[in-house]
Amino acid sequence: MLLLSILAESFTEAGEFLEGLKAIGAGLGYGLAAIGPGIGIGIVVGNAITAMARQPESAGMVRTTMFLGIAFTEALALIGFVVFILLLP
């Protein structure tokens, strides 16, 4: 809080400070939104590879399901990305 108040005094206008906070929020927001889907996609693809290695004859079906799983998991990261673009000053 001390740091923030020092920062706030160093700006001549409050609007500039708010713009900066918005940019920080946008960057942090996208980063935080990417954590969960990153882990999730890792789990999906890892298990799909295990399944394909165990049963290579079912690789086609597993691949289709894997892309579906990736698409659903990825949606959360993409919503974070959209918020990032919307918040950009």
Partner: peptide, 10 residues
């Protein structure tokens, strides 16, 4: 819609 759009924007 967002999945397609945001992937292309990114």
């Amino acid at each position: 819609a967002i999945r397609l759009w945001a992937n292309m924007v990114a």
